[in-house]
Amino acid sequence: MPEEGRRFWLDARYRRVVLEDVVAAVTYPGREDRLDEAVAVVDRAVEVGLAHLGIPRGPIDLPVRIEPRAVGRNAVKLEDCRLVLSATYLRLLPRLYSSPDVAFRTWLHESIHARQSYDPSWRAEFESWEGYEEGLADGLANILCDWAHALILETTDYVAYVQAYRALAAVLQMSRWALLRRLWSVPTGQVRATLLTVVDDQYHRLTGLRLPPEAMSRLRRTADALFVTGRTEVERSDHEVEEQWRGALE
């Protein structure tokens, strides 16, 4: 990995210092003038690291914005290519979490949304089934944080959607990375359509057969139920979700 990103990704102590610079700049009077520089250092490291790992970020409208949004509106990559983080969220990190690495994961998550311009019809997928896109971004961000040995809390933001992808990867005998990397290659708004193709291709690799139309229909219904908007809680075990996927593929 190029030097610009290597230390941030691989040296947890250095990453903590850099992220704490951002938090300090939105917290303490007199530190505001350091905010732009601190944000630019983190963002450049994130960008360089993602490119090195083969999932480069697409164009965003730099600089990354830090705005006084309510907590919960933590971060968003908007259709117009702005990437916005909440100053309130950053300020609360020390109280809420044991590590500023949570901001690292959020930064990665939003940068994964920025892989390409959004598909023009993205809202048709996102409004009803946000989990296809949010589960992809959170699942990949978690894998990257594992690689960087980031100290992340056990739960992720989109727990139910991440579980759905984890269970599907297990059923398809794929790594989570292989499954999510395939889906990463299409823009926001095309993940739902692409998932069926990815599953069918892997099914063909495993069995030599293509999924019949009725199985594709069951797969669509199962996936839509698991990735439906508003699922904030894990309601079943991984094993039970794997059984759901298997039932769709039989």
Binding site: N74, V159, T232
Partner: peptide, 9 residues
């Protein structure tokens, strides 16, 4: 905050 994040995002 996690639950808020999902709805507000």
């Amino acid at each position: 905050v996690r639950i808020l994040r999902v709805h507000l995002k």
